Amino acid sequence: MFPLRDHNPSGRTPYVVYLLMAANILGYLWYSTSFPGDRGLAMFYGAFAAVPREIMSGEAPLTLLTSMFIHGGVMHLAGNMLFLWIFGDNMEDEMGHLPFLLFYLVSGVGATLAHVVSAPMSPVPLVGASGAIAGVMGGYLLLFPKARVDILIILIVFFRIIPVPAFVMLGLWLGMQFLGGLNADPNLGGVAYWAHAGGFLIGLALTLPLWLKRGGPRFWTRTAGHPPHPETRYSVTRVPRVPRHPPARRPGPWGK
């Protein structure tokens, strides 16, 4: 299940979202090509990634920030930037440029600390913007629970793009983080589920004052949970269907 876009237009240019995306993408292009061999890159990660054991001992506090702008690979980076692109512009529109930047950074630091609490003695470095972006998603859920999000569902040979309310997509995502966190050992690396869940809840809490300023429950009543402006309408996006019974083929050589 991959989000592709939402139907929630923003009223102003999301300069901070653009800036954050540029910092992450250009940074990745720099450090992924500037350090010779795996050893040099590992030393870079060791210096700028967040290591729970070091943070618990009071070392390298700046890695709480620097780790948010480091990614472990192209797909890691691309996935995070997609989520930031979809949900970040509306949060920046509602909060304003500088408040949104502060919100993003605080959510990211809080998400990293949530991971540190879950594995305080872990020597495994933590990298990625997903904790901060999870905070953006938590705030989005509070402000626009029924905004429509187009998701791509892939089930083996079944491909379908369907619009769903944001609370369905984000609620499922949050539930997956809790389930993953309960079944994973954070000391072994992999997905930082508790950073995701922690960032989401922190972002939701940080958005509460803005939601109350908009009227709280009255805001939801007035908008029925939808964006307080006309939604974007897209033309129907079709995904090629894979036939259930492909035509028989003659035997051929093995391939991969």
Rank of each mutant, 00 (worst) to 15 (best):
N8R: 13
N8G: 00
G11D: 00
G11K: 07
T13E: 10
T13I: 15
V17G: 05
Y18Q: 09
L19G: 05
L29T: 14
T33L: 12
T33G: 13
S34L: 10
F35L: 12
G37Q: 10
D38W: 05
R39G: 15
G40L: 07
L41Y: 10
A42P: 08
G46E: 12
G46N: 12
F48L: 10
F48K: 14
A50V: 04
P52M: 06
M56Q: 14
G58H: 02
P61F: 01
L62N: 07
L62H: 10
L64E: 00
F69K: 08
V74P: 05
M75T: 11
H76L: 01
L77V: 05
A78Q: 12
G79T: 12
G79A: 02
G79M: 07
N80A: 06
L82E: 07
L82P: 07
F87T: 00
D89S: 14
D89W: 13
D89I: 14
E92D: 02
E92L: 02
D93F: 06
H97K: 15
H97M: 06
L98A: 09
F100M: 00
L102M: 04
F103G: 01
L105Q: 10
L113G: 00
A114C: 14
A114I: 03
H115A: 13
V117E: 03
S118V: 15
A119N: 11
P120G: 06
S122R: 08
V124W: 11
V124I: 15
A129Y: 06
S130H: 13
G131S: 01
I133Y: 02
L141Q: 07
L142V: 11
F144L: 08
P145H: 04
K146P: 00
A147Q: 09
R148V: 03
F158R: 15
R160C: 13
P165S: 02
V168I: 15
M169H: 12
L172D: 02
L174V: 11
Q177I: 04
G181V: 02
L182C: 06
L182W: 13
A184I: 09
L188T: 07
L188C: 05
G189K: 15
G189A: 04
G190F: 00
V191Q: 10
A192Y: 11
A195P: 04
G199W: 10
A205Y: 07
A205K: 11
T207Y: 14
P209M: 01
L210I: 03
W211H: 07
K213G: 13
R214H: 12
P217N: 12
P217V: 08
P217W: 05
T223S: 02
T223M: 01
H226C: 14
P228D: 00
P228H: 01
R233Y: 09
Y234M: 04
S235H: 15
R238L: 14
R238W: 15
V239Y: 05
P240T: 13
P247G: 15
A248Q: 15
R249N: 04
R250D: 10
G252A: 04
P253W: 02
